[in-house]
C-alpha cells in the first residue's frame, strides 16, 4: 500500500466520520420528537391548554404555566434587549482597545459559561430579597435577562463586526457623526443578525427551569399573572413536576406540555430566520 492510497483511505474515513457526526444530532432529535409526539400529541386539546393544574392527570392543564412563560418571555425581552444591544454597540464601536475592554470581553464570555442555577441564586438574593420583588414574574424575568445578556452582547458584536469598515468611512466622509453612522448605517445593516441572536437567546430562556425554581417560581398557581409582581409558574417547572409523579397520566401530560414548549421554541426560531432574511434583503449598498 503506497502513501496515496493510504491518504485516500484516511480521506474517506474522515468523510464518513463527518457524515455520522452530522446525523447523530439530527437522528437523536427525531427519535426524541417522535417519542414525545406519540406519547403526548393525543393529549393536546383546547381544554388541556386552558385548564388549571390538578391532581387528576386527565383534568390537569397548563393554563397558568403557559401564561407564566409568556409573561416571563415578554418581560425578559423588554429588559434584556435594550441593555444587551447597547452594551454590544458600546464595546464594538466606542470602547477603546485596551486593558479595560479586554477585561470586559473576557468577563462577558465567562458569564456566558456560568451555570444557570448560579443566576438563580443571584436572582433570589438580589432581586427577590434585597430589591424586595419577592418571587414575582419581574424577579424571574430580570434573572433570566441577566442569564441571556452575554449571549445577546456577543451576537450583537458579531453582527456589527460583519458590517464593512468602508460603510462607516463613507458615512463619516459625508459628514455624519458617530451616532448618525451607527444609527443609520451600522444598525440597519446588522439588525437581522442581532435579532437572530436575541431570539435564540430567548428560546433558551423559555426552557430554563432551574434558576426560576430557585428564585421562587411555583408549581401550583391557580391564576395567571396579572401584573409583573404576581406569583407565577412556567412550563418547564410544570413538566419537571409532572415527570416525577408516579401516575402514568402525568407522564402523558408532561409529553403534551413538552410539545407546546417545542412549538413555542420552533415558532421563535422561525421568526428569527424570517427576520434575518427580511433584513438582509432590505440592506443593499
Amino acid at each position: 500500500m503506497n502513501r496515496i492510497t493510504l491518504n485516500r483511505i484516511k480521506d474517506k474515513g474522515f468523510l464518513v466520520t463527518g457524515i455520522i457526526s452530522t446525523f447523530i444530532g439530527l437522528v437523536l432529535l427525531l427519535i426524541f420528537m417522535a417519542d414525545i409526539f406519540i406519547e403526548g400529541a393525543p393529549r393536546i386539546s383546547w381544554k388541556f391548554i386552558v385548564s388549571l393544574p390538578s391532581r387528576i392527570p386527565e383534568r390537569a392543564g397548563i393554563y397558568t404555566a403557559m401564561m407564566g412563560s409568556v409573561w416571563v418571555l415578554i418581560l425578559t425581552t423588554i429588559i434584556s434587549f435594550p441593555i444587551g444591544v447597547s452594551a454590544g454597540i458600546y464595546l464594538e464601536e466606542y470602547a477603546k482597545q485596551g486593558r479595560l475592554s479586554r477585561l470586559l470581553e473576557v468577563n462577558i464570555s465567562n458569564l456566558a459559561g456560568v451555570p444557570s442555577i448560579i443566576y438563580g441564586l443571584l436572582g433570589l438574593e438580589i432581586f427577590a430579597r434585597v430589591m424586595r420583588l419577592g418571587s414575582s414574574v419581574l424577579a424571574g424575568s430580570i434573572t433570566l435577562a441577566l442569564l441571556i445578556l452575554p449571549i445577546i452582547i456577543v451576537a450583537t458584536r458579531e453582527s456589527i463586526k460583519a458590517v464593512p469598515q468602508s460603510i462607516r468611512d463613507a458615512s463619516y466622509a459625508l459628514g455624519a457623526s458617530k451616532w448618525q453612522t451607527i444609527y443609520r448605517q451600522v444598525l440597519p445593516a446588522s439588525f437581522g443578525g442581532i435579532l437572530t441572536g436575541v431570539i435564540l437567546a430567548l428560546s433558551r430562556a423559555v426552557g430554563e427551569a432551574a434558576p426560576l425554581i430557585v428564585v421562587g417560581a411555583l408549581a401550583y398557581v391557580p391564576f395567571a399573572p396579572r401584573s409583573p409582581l404576581d406569583d407565577f409558574s412556567i412550563l418547564p417547572i410544570q413538566i419537571f413536576n409532572w415527570i416525577s409523579r408516579p401516575q402514568h397520566g402525568f407522564i402523558v401530560n408532561a409529553a403534551a406540555a413538552i410539545i407546546i414548549l417545542l412549538i413555542i421554541t420552533f415558532a421563535m426560531n422561525g421568526i428569527a430566520i424570517y427576520l434575518r432574511s427580511r433584513w438582509q434583503k432590505r440592506v443593499s449598498w
Binding site: 388549571l52 393544574p53 390538578s54 391532581r55 418571587s135 425554581i213 421562587g216 417560581a217 411555583l218 408549581a219 401550583y220 398557581v221 391557580p222 391564576f223 406569583d231 417547572i237 413536576n241
Partner: peptide
C-alpha cells in the same frame, strides 16, 4: 396540590400557591 385544588371549590377567592 390536591388539597389546594379542592379548597378552591370551598373558598374560590383564597389564592393558594404551592412551590417545590
Amino acid at each position: 396540590e390536591a388539597v389546594a385544588e379542592e379548597f378552591r371549590v370551598v373558598s374560590p377567592d383564597v389564592k393558594v400557591t404551592v412551590g417545590i
